[in-house]
Design a protein around this nucleic acid. Structure first.
Lengths: 264, 264
DNA sequence: CGTGCCAGGTGCCCT
DNA sequence: AGGGCACTTGGCACG
């Protein structure tokens, strides 16, 4: 099936009036809009910002997402997330692009004196995005092969509240001696903050049981200060690589008939 | 000064060969490139991801930033930050856009069977971006008007390390009774995590002095659990709005001759 | 370069 | 809606 011309409208160096017409048509048809040209930007909401004159790329998506991109940087310099409402009008011969978010109240105004390019596109994207080697997969890998944590470790509860309050533990289980074990996963180098988080869960669980509660931090690496705090609290560090966990899950799911047993 | 046509090259429905030529020329000239069309995306690096066929917008900036945008969502579905290196080639009749980051090693491959649009732009942007109502401005406002924290509060050290280790306190000072006070600022609603951070600084400072050390959390609001933990630790919550702090700083800097004295 | 921490963080999931 | 937390977080400042 070939893409028709009606799905792609491009205006090069349009007048402000031509641009506003194309953009309004685009908004009403749920199109993704690209506007390129010299502009100033004002933002007021949770914070405030001003951006003086320069050439930028503005993207308005049909879901309300609104982004102003400078020629450098990964992040948009100004934006509104999905759910915002965009509009366009002419004032003093300039094109004004306005994006308004209801809550929290945020207003973005882009002022273009000239327009280099307007592109209006009806894009279809029902593609499936799959992400691997996440923290969640580390947890799943340990459920499949508990000795990744330590010999004799038995997972009990996966995630969920320790008792409805005070945060959530990534994983709770028992060690070979019957002690309770709280495991905190990090997919990147763990620092002091991760250890403090673990301590919170251990303390919360300790206050609800007479059994000994151990803390284990599972991550690809720890910072020096993180390790220091860990040892000071009597907790343990277990090296665990998210990529290795992903490979394990992959192998396990590829041969579902025997996969699970291989690791039990 | 008028923008010349040479600074804006647009190809509508180009062949894969035409597209690759325009893109290579664009890369070598430090241009911002927009590519639109149906594609699949594969990512491998700190994590991994796949994205099946759909129509997307790809942005390559001259600083190496690389983004793949779906028709919905504020964030790019795949990306590389500035410093990455992009290249383009043809394989099996498809256009391949590759972005490689050295460290951490990350590789992004976009595979386009067709190209709806290529735009190549030389954008100039020397505009100044100014952000207000940040956490830093909250701190500066308190330095100008310490009673925002409490009557008799005297700021001492301008944040930085408590003693070279264990994180940084936002602000340290003395209260009217001569006790040490650690202030933690949050520009949004503060939760348990903010309180734990404050506790760290208070404990670290306590261990280095015989004086009493108080903890104060300054934020526009606190979560219920945050407040609970705060009271449990004997710390204090002070309501402080970043927007109000910004107004204060603005007034103070507008009349520099008398501004400071007005608040002392 | 590692370590720590803010961000107009955003997004996801939970009560 | 509020709360807790991961994120390919990115970005900056500092030892």
């Amino acid at each position: 099936m070939s893409k028709l011309n009606g799905d792609l409208e491009v205006l090069v160096e349009p007048s402000v009036e031509e641009a506003v017409k194309a953009l309004r048509r685009g908004f009403s048809q749920g199109r993704l809009l690209l506007v390129i040209g010299p502009c100033t930007v004002d933002y007021e909401g949770r914070a405030r910002s001003t951006l003086s004159l320069g050439e930028r790329v503005i993207i308005c998506k049909p879901d309300g997402s609104f982004m102003v991109h400078r020629p450098t940087g990964y992040e948009p310099v100004n934006w509104n997330p999905p759910g915002a409402l965009a509009s366009v009008y002419v004032e003093d011969g300039s094109l004004k692009l306005v994006s308004i978010r209801k809550r929290p109240p945020e207003k973005l105004v882009v002022n273009l004196s000239r327009v280099y390019l307007v592109a209006s596109l009806k894009l279809e994207d029902s593609g499936v995005f799959a992400l691997h080697a996440s923290e969640e997969e580390m947890r799943r890998a340990v459920l499949i092969k508990p000795e990744l944590i330590e010999e004799g470790f038995k997972p009990m509860e996966a995630e969920r509240a320790i008792d409805g309050l005070e945060g959530y533990a990534d994983l709770v289980g028992e060690d070979v001696e019957g002690n309770l074990v709280v495991v905190e996963f990090k997919r990147v180098t763990a620092g002091r903050e991760a250890v403090l988080q673990l301590k919170q869960y251990v303390d919360a669980l300790s206050s609800r049981t007479s059994r000994r509660v151990r803390g284990i931090l599972a991550a690809p690496s720890v910072t020096k200060e993180g390790l220091r705090l860990l040892e000071q609290l009597g907790f343990k560090f277990v090296r665990l690589d998210p990529q290795v966990c992903y490979q394990l899950i992959k192998s396990a799911s590829v041969k579902p008939s025997t996969g699970l047993l291989d690791y039990l």
